[in-house]
């Protein structure tokens, strides 16, 4: 089994009741296996309310079949923007 550390930042820490947790994943687990495990923790991953980052890149920017490794690190945090900046990402019209 591989242990993947998941850190909760900002207001999510209080919501989750902990600063971090560890996910035990099978040795052959891939990036695509992460999302359901994160949802099982109770994280709202719909409507882009929270952002999931794996090794400093957005989770969706990794190939789903990329194997997970023991030193992979996940952070999850709520959508917040500084000052009066936008707090929700723009959605692009398809061109």
């Amino acid at each position: 089994m591989i242990a993947i550390t998941v850190k909760f930042l900002g207001g999510l820490r209080q919501e989750m009741g902990t600063a971090q947790t560890s996910l035990s994943m099978p040795d052959d687990a891939t990036v695509g296996d992460l999302e359901p495990r994160l949802r099982a923790l109770g994280l709202d991953l719909d409507s882009e309310k929270n952002i999931v980052v794996l090794n400093n890149r957005g989770l969706g920017q990794w190939q789903p079949n990329r194997p997970l490794a023991a030193d992979d690190a996940v952070i999850v945090f709520p959508h917040i923007a500084g000052g009066s900046g936008t707090s929700r990402p723009v959605r692009f019209p398809e061109t």
């Binding site: 920017q61 923007a81 900046g85």
Partner: peptide
């Protein structure tokens, strides 16, 4: 403010 989209966009990364 591009930070969110640079993490969520699937066509490019940050």
């Amino acid at each position: 403010y591009t930070v969110s989209e640079e993490l969520l966009g699937t066509k490019y990364d940050r």
